[in-house]
Simulated assay, not measured.
Amino acid sequence: MSTHRVLLLNGPNLNMLGVRQPEVYGAASLADVEALAQRTASELGLTVSARQTNHEGEMLEWIHAARGEFDAIVINPGGWTHTSVALRDALVIPDVPVIEVHISNVAAREEFRHTSYVSGIAAAVIAGCGVQGYEFALRRVVHLLDGQ
């Protein structure tokens, strides 16, 4: 069993899950997502630290501090996916696998959502699986780190 440390990051507006556009993002809240991540992590022997912010600078600081502290990052960058070169640049600093998660299928949505600054440096991209994508991401982390 793994003992890896995973930083789970959620970007802007994800604190409004369950309220904002439930027809797109579903009824689960961010607390539900974090509980799912903790249950999955427990099953897999991972330690997960979950954080959410609407402030890009705070997100960047968390990513910088992850170097040497975490073995992988699972991130739903929200709207920063399509706008933030700074986020992309920060995600290479910890030198750990990054898994990009999107609740909706961004490729089937508005044209501007088809470009991700994160995907090019991500070890995996999971989109369109609802909140279950977070579970898939944690399972992928174990596979990447333990070679299972």
Rank of each mutant, 00 (worst) to 15 (best):
M1E: 08
M1L: 00
M1D: 09
S2G: 00
T3A: 02
H4C: 00
H4S: 15
R5Y: 05
L9P: 03
P12G: 02
P12V: 13
N15V: 02
N15H: 06
N15G: 13
N15R: 05
R20I: 09
Q21E: 15
Q21R: 13
Q21D: 14
P22H: 03
E23K: 12
E23C: 03
V24L: 14
V24P: 08
G26E: 01
A27H: 14
A28Y: 08
A28K: 09
S29T: 15
L30A: 10
L30P: 06
A31E: 13
D32P: 06
D32Y: 13
E34S: 10
A35Q: 11
A35C: 04
L36P: 00
A37N: 07
R39I: 11
A41P: 00
A41N: 01
A41M: 07
S42G: 15
E43S: 13
L44Q: 05
G45H: 04
G45T: 02
T47N: 07
T47V: 09
T47A: 14
V48N: 04
V48Y: 02
A50N: 01
T53M: 05
N54W: 01
H55E: 12
E56S: 03
E56D: 09
G57L: 00
E58H: 05
E58S: 11
L60I: 15
L60H: 00
W62G: 00
W62C: 01
I63E: 11
I63W: 09
A65H: 11
A65T: 04
G68N: 03
F70P: 02
F70Y: 15
I73R: 03
V74F: 02
N76L: 10
N76R: 07
N76D: 09
P77W: 01
P77K: 02
G79K: 09
W80Y: 15
W80H: 04
T81L: 02
T81V: 03
T83M: 13
S84P: 04
A86N: 09
L87Y: 01
L87F: 01
L87E: 00
D89L: 13
D89Y: 05
D89A: 04
L91G: 12
L91F: 10
L91V: 11
V92E: 09
I93Q: 12
P94I: 07
D95Q: 11
V96R: 07
P97L: 06
V98L: 07
E100H: 12
E100N: 06
E100D: 14
V101A: 10
V101F: 06
I103Q: 02
S104P: 04
S104M: 06
V106I: 15
A107D: 15
A107G: 15
A107M: 06
A108T: 15
A108Y: 04
E110F: 04
E110I: 01
E110T: 04
F112S: 06
F112P: 12
F112M: 11
F112C: 03
R113P: 07
H114N: 07
T115N: 14
T115P: 00
Y117C: 10
V118E: 00
G120F: 07
G120H: 08
I121A: 13
A122M: 07
A122L: 13
A123D: 02
A123V: 05
A123H: 06
A123Q: 08
V125M: 11
I126C: 06
I126Y: 05
A127M: 15
A127L: 13
A127R: 12
A127D: 10
G133T: 12
G133Q: 11
E135K: 12
A137L: 09
A137H: 07
A137M: 13
V142S: 00
H143K: 13
L145R: 12
L145S: 05
